[in-house]
């Protein structure tokens, strides 16, 4: 068996006649961190949603460790347990406390012992600095805290791969860092991760490989340093230029 954990082969997804993903092929190895970047509407979030079979696909295949991920298949819930996902909007269950949010699926889906699950949840909360919030309800947390809990909730299912869908995009700027730090920590532990983000500095720091997606196609695929310093395609250059604010100010300074 190869060390390819997730394999996407020639994935095509369209909606209302618009092609959103146009023949995307991609694989993620064990312990690899892959970051997908690209302009809004390029299909990167849709790609993650397809991996978790939240969206129907038109052709191509997605496999996790050789098992096909398919909508409406009997094995889907079991496969989804092996894939952790964190969304952009706060997706915590508002009627459950932080701790219950985390242990709900381990107890009800994996039928694990409640005390054991709670112990693990507390240890994970401790690790993201939120152990004192265990009894709080989601509405009492800040955006950054909610996202950290959402990450812990995904981790507690012992997933083999984690999908992050722009998890900091809805956060106030001062809360972005605390969430990204948790993700960096996960990368250090050797977790397999597939991340969609707009945080370029972070992408560079965390990624083993960058995928640049535009108009539903993979335009460029490279090591982070290579991609950010020396993008090969015109599209990637244009895209990266959009994040260049500092140079303008520096030039202003020189003009003086």
């Amino acid at each position: 068996m190869s060390d390819e954990l997730l394999k996407i082969d020639n994935l095509v997804k369209s909606f209302d006649g618009n092609t959103i993903l146009d023949g995307v092929s991609l694989s993620v190895k064990k312990s690899e961190v892959v970051v997908i970047i690209g302009p809004s509407g390029c299909g990167k979030s849709t790609l993650l949603r397809c991996i978790n079979a939240l969206e129907p696909i038109q052709s191509g295949s997605i496999t996790l460790d050789g098992e096909v991920i398919e909508r409406n298949s009997k094995t889907l819930p079991a496969l989804r347990q092996r894939i952790g996902m964190v969304f952009q909007s706060y997706d915590l269950f508002p009627h459950l406390s932080v701790l219950d949010n985390i242990v709900l699926a381990p107890c009800k889906v994996q039928k694990r012992n409640r005390d054991e699950a709670k112990q693990e949840a507390m240890a994970l909360l401790e690790r993201v600095g939120l152990s004192e919030k265990a009894k709080s309800y989601p509405r009492e947390l800040s955006g950054g805290q909610k996202q950290r809990v959402a990450i812990v909730r995904a981790l507690c299912m012992h997933p083999e791969i984690l999908l992050f869908d722009e998890v900091t995009a809805a956060l106030d700027p001062e809360m972005v860092r605390e969430v990204l730090d948790v993700m960096l920590d996960l990368a250090k532990q050797g977790r397999t991760m597939l991340i969609v983000t707009h945080e370029m500095q972070f992408a560079r720091a965390i990624a083993d490989r960058i995928i640049f997606l535009d108009n539903g196609k993979i335009v460029e695929e490279a090591k982070p340093d290579e991609f950010f310093d020396n993008p090969k395609t015109e599209r990637a250059k244009q895209f990266l230029n959009m994040f260049e604010f500092d140079s303008v100010k520096a030039r202003d300074g020189l003009d003086k």
Binding site: P77, D91, L92, F93, A105, V109
Partner: peptide, 10 residues
Amino acid sequence: QTESAYSLGM
């Protein structure tokens, strides 16, 4: 809410 429950394998 449904999606995150599904993604937790429910």
